[in-house]
């Protein structure tokens, strides 16, 4: 069966000092096992753009001001996009905001990915990195994962989550084939299509984890940031343990509690990061 998807979009991003505005549109055609896509300038958007170059630049500069001396911004990308989509008889529109930040001090790199322009948590991570020990420490036996760290872990938990943890898709938004994203667990009914140039795939949107226990012991050490992308269930993290801050490698083998609520992060088709207690 032939399926035709059309997208027109605009983005603006601040990338390590450059400001890039991109305007493009295209069509993707799936016909049985074959996927074909190409630009389609006929789709040029008539809608007024809501994007603001000044906004991404001001967010980038605000982040730069939060970074203490001794910490180097290795990579900073702030972007905003808007897109109009059509699939079969459905049309919809969405907007995105993203921040990718890599901070470095000596041999330690912290990675921060955000799905909005709320930048408050960056300062505390940068301050912790500024006083971090250089050498790797032993991971505490009992540890909390901050919401941003937990969010990055969630895609790795799919299919291997311990029995006391339920992974589910939260409702919200429209998927890559124009269907509403509804609450779901176990099977993922929706299609993820990050670009018209990418063949859509089934994936959980707004992926969240829930546990029978939601009470978090706030006295435990906490992993406040990622030092590398997760490798399955192994995390390299920056641990805040009383006055000490140090890098550590954590293998997630059990989960004791998961806080309720959480913030949306741009991992996979989106994850909801809430504090996890290991």
């Amino acid at each position: 069966m032939k399926e035709i998807y059309r997208k027109r979009g605009r983005s603006v991003r601040w990338e390590n000092g450059h400001v890039i505005r991109v305007n493009e549109s295209g069509v993707a055609i799936e016909n049985d096992e074959r996927f074909v896509c190409h630009p389609d300038p006929e789709l040029a958007s008539a809608a007024a753009s809501l994007m603001d170059v000044g906004r991404v630049a001001s967010i980038a500069h605000a982040i730069q001001r939060q970074i203490p001396n001794g910490i180097r911004i290795e990579r900073l990308i702030v972007s905003e996009g808007e897109a109009e989509h059509t699939f079969r008889d459905k049309s919809w529109r969405d907007t995105t905001q993203r921040i990718h930040l890599a901070l470095a001090r000596a041999h330690t790199r912290v990675l921060i990915d955000l799905g909005d322009f709320e930048i408050d948590e960056i300062a505390s991570i940068a301050d912790a990195l500024a006083r971090a020990e250089e050498n790797e420490g032993a991971a505490p036996a009992r540890l909390r994962l901050a919401g941003n760290v937990a969010a990055a872990l969630l895609p790795s938990l799919v299919s291997v989550a311990p029995p006391n943890v339920l992974l589910s898709q939260h409702a919200g938004g429209i998927d890559g084939k124009g269907e509403a994203i509804e609450a779901a667990a176990g099977l993922w009914p929706n299609w993820y299509r990050p670009s018209y140039r990418v063949r859509p795939m089934r994936a959980p949107f707004n992926l969240a984890a829930r546990c029978d226990v939601s009470q978090i012991d706030a006295t435990r050490p906490i992993a406040i940031a990622l030092l590398a992308p997760p490798e399955e269930l192994t995390l390299r993290v920056l641990v805040l343990d009383g006055e000490r801050v140090y890098p550590a490698t954590v293998r997630v083998t059990r989960i004791d509690a998961i806080a309720e609520g959480g913030r949306w992060y741009p991992y996979g088709a989106g994850t909801i990061g809430a504090e996890i207690m290991l």
Partner: peptide, 20 residues
């Protein structure tokens, strides 16, 4: 899979305007 991509980028200093 088959893809075609094309576009033009116009640079002026650190600003880049790009379209397809």
């Amino acid at each position: 899979e088959q893809r075609l991509s094309h576009g033009i980028a116009r640079h002026d200093g650190d600003a880049i305007d790009a379209d397809d």
